[in-house]
């Protein structure tokens, strides 16, 4: 009797431990400025959407996850706290793609030391793109190249802040599919901020909504 109980408890422990281990990103009481503290978890390979009214803190949440803004609380990647590594190492693992990309060299190639060739082709480019002038890129091309650049460092978490907000539907679809294929192949976890209901439906069923300063689980 007693033995059975112990083994049952052990099984439960083992199961919960295994679940813990499969958690890629664990966020505990993350607090940004005046907002309520938020806790949540993300599995490897999971795709989550994030929505909420503008000004509710979506971008601030993503910025805090990439450790770009001061915040309270803890974040762990594979059980290692963000404080346990230099900030730039954390940001290599937790890539943030903002709504508007920034370019500082005259040509595209000046922004890449390495890139994923399969992804380059899937995004509709050939290797020649590295010689293109940044000034001549369309907004769609810029955003696709920014995605390629963000993924060049092989991150484990990808934070997308309305990456297709200003793009036509064809270009948006290319980006959606490229992210989706890359996620399946690499097991990267994705948080996707989007206002577009139809896009959310195409992407995933699981998501979070920010309402009244609370982060709530919501499945579409």
């Amino acid at each position: 009797m007693c033995l059975v109980l112990v083994s049952e408890k052990f099984t439960q422990f083992a199961i919960s431990f295994a679940m813990m281990a499969s958690m890629k990103l664990v966020v505990n009481n993350l607090q940004i400025l005046m907002l309520e503290p938020w806790s949540f978890e993300l599995r490897a390979g999971e795709c989550i959407y994030l929505s909420g009214p503008s000004g509710s803190g979506k971008t601030r949440l993503l910025r805090a996850l990439a450790d770009l803004d001061p915040h309270q609380g803890d974040m762990q990647l594979d059980g290692v706290s963000y404080l346990g590594m230099p900030a730039h190492s954390w940001r290599k693992k937790v890539a943030f793609l903002p709504a508007e990309s920034q370019w500082w060299s005259a040509d595209v190639g000046g922004h890449f030391s390495d890139y994923n060739k399969t992804l380059l082709h899937e995004l509709g480019f050939t290797e020649q793109v590295m010689g293109w002038e940044v000034a001549r890129l369309s907004s769609g091309e810029k955003q696709r190249l920014a995605l390629l650049r963000a993924l060049a460092q092989s991150p484990e978490i990808l934070l997308l802040d309305e990456p297709t907000a200003n793009l036509d539907s064809k270009c948006a679809t290319v980006i959606e599919q490229a992210v989706e294929h890359y996620r399946r192949d690499s097991g990267i976890a994705v948080i996707w901020v989007s206002h577009d209901i139809s896009q959310i439906k195409r992407l995933t069923r699981h998501g979070w909504v920010i309402a009244d300063q609370q982060l709530k689980r919501q499945d579409a």
């Binding site: 990439a66 770009l68 230099p86 900030a87 730039h88 190492s89 940001r91 290599k92 890539a95 943030f96 793609l97 903002p98 508007e100 990309s101 920034q102 500082w104 650049r149 963000a150 460092q153």
Partner: peptide, 16 residues
């Protein structure tokens, strides 16, 4: 003036 560019580089895992 170039705060966005500096932050974009930080996002790519560059050191300060």
């Amino acid at each position: 003036q170039q705060r966005s560019i500096i932050e974009a580089r930080l996002m790519l895992g560059w050191t300060w």
